[in-house]
Amino acid sequence: MHEKTVEAGVLEPCLEMKGLDFWYGDTQALKGIDLVVPRHRITALIGPSGCGKSTVLRCINRMNELIEGTRHEGRIVLDGRDIFDDDVDPVALRRHIGMVFQKPNPFPKSIYDNIAYGVRLSRKVGKTEMDRVVQDALEKAHLWDEVKDRLKSPATGLSGGQQQRLCIARALAVKPRVLLMDEPCSALDPIATAKIEDLLLELRDEVTIIIVTHSMQQAARVSDYTAFFYLGELIEHGPTRRIFESPNEQLTERYITGRFG
């Protein structure tokens, strides 16, 4: 049913990849990826290690360009604009696309300054406004109540799960349209993981989320759509329930049922 609505265009596409190829030096990491990511939904990218799912993520905010010797072909269209256009500045682009990494990576600054850092980059913000922005972001990330009394203490003193929620808050504070998450729970315990998954479901209304995950259960729990990658190719893509219950491709089925890692 979900699939129908997408096809009918009821769900507005947020991001579209068209024939995306990507190379690290001579090795081709992505082959002709065509993928539509619907707005205000959670799309999970799954597949075995080295299948290219993290590369896809890093193409979207053009972080891959920082590595020497990479190149791409094809297009990624975000809200009607090809992000590889000449007039697109990757720095400007990254303000619209937040990213949360595998390992929580708060800056060695205070909790407050971690959130404020990204906001301050683009404009001067007064103290009262910044206080509000920080509180707002921390509340959205379900962290406010835990840290409101120690905003000035170092972020590195937080637990792993708190740190990761701080990283989410840090990304949300600059009001991105898309949030990229690269296995955000792989370094966390189950309770911390559950908190973050709850958070994602709430954030869906605000931001389009693309999450790379190694855990099939996580994909099934949180995502609306799932894309299965194998050896740099997009094998199958559709509503999560359909992918998990009746995959069209044999490869997808074998992966989902755990017959290869």
Binding site: M63, L66, R95, M99, F101, K103, N105, F107, R170, V174
Partner: peptide, 15 residues
């Protein structure tokens, strides 16, 4: 300095 700190900053839109 760990690479992931640089990435976090760049991904926030820092030069």
């Amino acid at each position: 300095v760990p690479q992931h700190l640089r990435e976090a900053s760049l991904a926030l839109g820092a030069t």
